[in-house]
């Protein structure tokens, strides 16, 4: 293809957007609505998941040792536990550390009277953090088989709630993605039908004076891609403002929730959302225009 044909094609694609303003606006609005809904949904999923993961990582199984176990034996047990796949990290807490944090948490300034001796003698332990809290039971039954372990403290309730939330999120995600896809397809096919009516005659004329399919199709495809880009960019801008303001609003007004809700930073969120949104918008625009033109090339 000649350079001048290529330039002409791009220029026509650009001009097409303005030739059928109503159609362009309708398509941009459709794509923007799809991307916007997707963005909102994505923000919810990502942040809930992040909060759940943060909560998960603070759930620990604590193990205490038989009296008189040597430091080496304790270290051996620690090594064995870290080898398990569901274990994220194993932290050793000495009796002194356990007492120190107990004092801070429960006694405050009244701790002075205990100066000198440690009432929690023999309470050194491992705090075991997990990748996946739903595996807690299997970890505990493994720990029960290890010699030298006196006691295992587990937090069943929290672990169950968290793993239930995870399951619910994945089902709800699937359902919403399905609904969104169906809605997008419905909207796009409507706009495409409208485009077909507008373009039928024009495409026929081009073909009758000898234009190749490629020459007829290219400007429409470029138009579709441009419309897809605009349709993705607009909701991205809107989502940026909504997201950043929402974070500030929740932090200000609902300080209580701050511990539970771990918002993803706006940079992280958008570095994930932008590529997905652009692919979604451009893909919808591209497919829509290919489909519109294809049906009319047989003249």
């Amino acid at each position: 293809m000649r350079i001048s044909t290529l330039l002409y094609t791009c220029k026509q694609g650009f001009k097409n957007i303005f030739r059928n303003k109503m159609f362009s606006l309708a398509t941009i609005a459709t794509i923007a609505a799809c991307v916007f809904l997707f963005g909102i949904f994505y923000a919810i999923v990502v942040n809930v998941q992040q909060s759940v993961r943060a909560a998960e990582s603070s759930v620990a199984v604590t193990v205490f040792f038989d009296e008189g176990l040597s430091q080496e034996q304790i270290m051996l047990i620690g090594d064995e536990i870290s080898k398990r796949p569901e274990v994220a990290s194993v932290v050793f807490v000495s009796a002194e550390e356990a007492w120190d944090s107990f004092k801070v948490d429960y006694l405050g300034e009244y701790a002075d009277g205990y100066e000198g001796d440690n009432p929690l003698e023999g309470s050194e332990n491992y705090e075991i953090y997990m990748n996946d809290v739903s595996k807690q039971s299997s970890l505990v039954s493994y720990l029960e088989t290890i010699d030298g372990i006196r006691e295992i403290n587990r937090s069943d309730a929290t672990a169950n709630i968290l793993s239930n939330i995870n399951t619910v999120i994945s089902y709800v995600s699937l359902a919403i993605i399905g609904i969104l896809l169906a809605v997008s397809l419905f909207l796009i096919s409507n706009t495409v039908a409208m485009g077909i009516a507008v373009r039928r005659e024009e495409i026929a004329i081009m073909k009758l004076i000898g234009a190749k399919d490629f020459v007829v199709r290219s400007p429409f495809v470029i138009e579709g891609i441009l419309i897809g880009l605009i349709g993705a960019a607009l909701p991205l801008i809107a989502l940026y403002f909504i997201y950043s303001n929402l974070i500030l609003y929740v932090k200000d007004e609902f300080a209580v929730l701050d511990d539970i809700l771990k918002f993803m930073s706006i940079e992280d969120f958008f570095s994930r959302l932008i590529p997905i949104a652009l692919i979604l918008g451009v893909g919808l625009g591209f497919l829509g225009s290919m489909f519109t033109v294809h049906r009319h090339l047989r003249v």
């Binding site: 030739r19 059928n20 005659e201 024009e202 026929a204 004329i205 081009m206 073909k207 009758l208 004076i209 000898g210 234009a211 190749k212 399919d213």
Partner: peptide, 19 residues
């Protein structure tokens, strides 16, 4: 397409690109 390029046509209803 190649064949049609060897023919100039004036259609009875003109068939111009309207916009």
């Amino acid at each position: 397409a190649k064949f049609r390029r060897s023919i100039g046509v004036v259609f009875q209803d003109f068939r111009l690109l309207k916009d």
